[in-house]
Design a protein around this nucleic acid. Structure first.
Lengths: 239, 239
DNA sequence: CGCGGTGTTGAGACCTGTCAAGACGTGTGG
DNA sequence: CCACACGTCTTGACAGGTCTCAACACCGCG
């Protein structure tokens, strides 16, 4: 069930059989989590990182006023707090959006990786750098894109990332977020999410019902979104 | 002149004399750049990273419509494209906001660091993770904070980061950005930046003239900004 | 002395937020 | 099996923050 994670790594660089064995050996235990809980609380001392095997999680930051901004969504195969290995504490919560299955990876073992497997270390460094690239793209969305374009962009991003993990095909994927949660990703209110979603439907770009996303016209959606996947760094090359 | 960089590292962890020597040895050459150029073009193949010794740079993403969003500001001591070491190409431009002096660090030497100096490698990994934390805080600003709060937050962040590099004292620092460029950071138009700045002045929180920033009431400014510096990870501990 | 970039101001438009109410669906308890 | 509660989705009217467009002031520089 760590397959999605290996798929994600192998999309960016070769992973030898030996390295795969090392990576599989990182996991100390596998745990199931219910939906809508804080899995990792901000500012808590960390001694392990969490690899998402199944389900959706998110990195959320809250304002004292109670407003929430989600900084990144995570799907199967993502290391949701790999950055916690060097940071030791997180500046955000990691929350479950659905029921999830996760693997725990002790920081001690990650440290050994940096000492004995520099190539894996660089690969994991790369993964956190790709997370940062996603943050930058969201910054661009929030700063300069309209609500419509922003939402279209998110749907394009999820289509690719879920596809990589084997969780999307034919431009269709399970999309478990409520409109409130979509708003927390997009910096919008739930009301405006609702209207923007209707506009995307009216334009016949997407269908979204029963938590199931179907992209009807990917080319047009990308155009509305101004979507270019280079920021996801999907080329396989030595790192 | 690499002092600011060492200060930045030493704010987060011990750096031994040996390690300092290794870090100083990373630099291949030092170059001066004029203001307002693209120092590193997005998507270009990279074989070295750039360490900013003096001046201001920024990571900028452009939309086809010509609108620009700045994702992070960089000051003396920052490795402006350390993430380029694993990414190999950038998803954004790195531009100079002022005349700058930079040091070039070949990726070959960084690779050696990951093989022979895992602790320095972890420190540099940490630095890119802190950049990502800054991205997340900006995401929160753009998604949920008002223009006033967002601007106040940026001024607080710069106060701390410049202070760390020895470029701020008594809550005063050189602030070379035009109002247009401030808008590119804050997701605002220049007109609204102007009005928001006036509001901050009217509230007697800051003075900004002749490109010189003076924070008049830091406590009040932080309150308006909802500023908490934990996201800058200023605690010194083993990484 | 004129020019270009920057800063400032005003009026009006527009995108998104706020508030409120109702529809719909699903799970639970009687 | 029905009644109800709760969360989610939807809709309308209105408010408000930010943008657009336009004009002018200021200033350093050639």
């Amino acid at each position: 069930m760590i397959e999605a994670h290996l798929l994600k790594l192998r999309a960016r660089d070769e992973v030898t059989a030996d390295e795969e064995k090392t990576i599989r050996g990182l996991v100390s235990e596998v745990v199931d989590l219910p939906a809508d809980i804080v899995a990792i609380r901000h500012h808590a001392e960390l001694h392990q990182s969490v690899l998402l095997l199944e389900g959706w999680m998110a990195r959320a930051k809250d304002l004292p006023s109670g407003e929430r901004q989600i900084a990144e969504l995570h799907v199967a195969g993502d290391f949701v707090d790999l950055h916690g290995f060097t940071l030791k504490r997180l500046d955000h919560d990691v929350i479950t959006m659905t029921a999830c299955r996760v693997a725990h990876v002790p920081h001690e073992r990650l440290k050994e990786v940096t000492e004995r497997f520099p190539h894996i270390a660089r690969l994991y460094w790369l993964m956190t750098n790709i997370d940062a690239a996603v943050h930058r793209e969201w910054t661009l969305s929030l700063g300069r894109r309209t609500a419509l374009s922003r939402m279209a962009h998110l749907f394009c991003e999820l289509n690719i990332r879920l596809g990589l993990a084997g969780r999307a095909s034919n431009n269709c994927y399970a999309m478990p977020l409520t409109q409130i949660e979509l708003g927390e990703c997009l910096g919008l209110t739930a009301v405006h999410v609702n209207r923007t979603l209707q506009e995307l439907r009216r334009l016949e770009l997407v269908e979204l019902q029963q938590r199931q996303m179907r992209i009807l016209d990917l080319a047009a959606l990308k155009k509305v979104a101004d979507f270019d996947p280079v920021y996801l760094y999907l080329d396989k090359r030595p790192r």
